[in-house]
Design a protein around this nucleic acid. Structure first.
Length: 327
DNA sequence: CTGTAGGA
DNA sequence: TCCTACAGG
């Protein structure tokens, strides 16, 4: 879910063609979840192979990545590691929602209410080990690099962009600003008519709001994050006014007599100094054509012609980091 | 969500 | 050529 900063950020519009020649870190969980929720039939059934394994994510990763590479945009996928202990409450809530949705999905199916079925089916989507492992296997065969984070994927993806290994982070989550990503791309989609890709720049955002990154983190803590509840009735706009008036979180809490009921320093540490992997391999390699066909068409019943055409796009020469890998 | 066949 | 509708697995 992440911090609710929609009301205080002013994204710029950016077109896919302006991303040409850039490396992007992609919040893989965020993306795979999107594929799992949306790539479904009318009644909510996901794509499956003949053995019943879900394949929506494989389809999404293959065709999206192939088109990006063809357009000379290079995605590095970043997978979630272990979430901080503080996130347990958020995670437990999500599990409850999924259980409820599962029931409502079945009910809707029995009643023959397709629209309702689809709505609740989407909410039942979850990233189990099989989904993650098959996604990683696919990326390896495609020659696309991925990084396994120690903690939150957004933290790792943001760190890599901050280090200059990527131009921007692809994520829906405003948390990436807190994690220090210089640029975030939201609503990232390939569809021809998509003119909705949003570019959010950290420094520009801080300048507009007249805040430091540390203050922005404190504002998030007031509003509520995945790691704490925040103050009831305080949204992002109010929190900024308070920060401008009182200057620090400590001063706000004291003057307004708020009860934050969380370890502020621990949450600051999660955003400002996360445990990231520093020696990652982000080399783009040649796709392993035969193995891709075996995996997708042999094991998961993909159409061979469609798969071949995606592989052709992956063979775009710009996808290889260096010439040695190409020859 | 993404690719594409077929109609305007 | 652009757009809509629909299938993909």
């Amino acid at each position: 879910m992440g911090v609710k900063f929609k009301d205080i950020t002013h994204p710029e519009k950016i077109e896919m063609k302006n991303l040409d020649n850039n490396v992007l870190t992609v919040d893989a969980s965020n993306l795979i979840y999107k594929f799992l929720t949306t790539m479904r039939q009318g009644d909510g059934t996901p794509l499956r192979d003949l053995n019943g394994n879900i394949t929506s994510h494989l389809n999404g990763i293959l065709f999206q990545t192939a088109t990006l590479i063809e357009q000379n945009i290079k995605p590095i996928y970043v997978f979630d590691g272990k979430a901080p202990e503080l996130k347990q409450k958020t995670q437990q809530e999500r599990i409850e929602v999924k259980k409820e949705s599962e029931q409502k999905y079945q009910e809707a199916l029995e009643l023959g209410d397709e629209a309702k079925a689809r709505k609740y089916a989407a909410r039942t989507a979850h990233l189990n080990r099989e989904i993650i492992e098959s996604s990683k296997k696919l990326l390896t065969l495609m020659g696309i690099p991925y990084v396994q984070s120690k903690t939150e994927g957004e933290a790792q993806a943001s760190y890599m962009a901050n280090q200059g290994d990527a131009w921007a982070v692809v994520s829906q989550d405003y948390d990436c600003l807190l994690f220090g990503a210089p640029r975030i791309l939201r609503n990232f989609k390939l569809t021809k008519t998509n003119t909705d890709i949003q570019l959010l720049q950290l420094q520009k955002t801080l300048d507009e709001l007249n805040l430091t990154r540390n203050q922005l983190v404190d504002i998030a803590i007031l509003v509520g994050t995945d790691f704490n509840d925040g103050i009831y009735g305080v949204g992002a706009k109010t929190a900024i006014k308070l920060m401008h008036k009182y200057g620090s979180l400590e001063s706000i809490v004291k003057n307004k007599n708020y009860d934050l009921d969380c370890d502020v320093d621990e949450i600051r540490e999660i955003f400002l100094n996360p445990d990231v992997v520093r020696n990652y391999d982000i080399e783009f390699r040649k796709p392993q054509k035969d193995k891709l066909i075996d995996f997708l068409c042999g094991e998961h019943d993909f159409d061979e012609i469609r798969t071949q055409s995606a592989i052709k796009k992956l063979q775009h020469k710009a996808a290889q980091t260096s010439l040695e890998n190409w020859f």
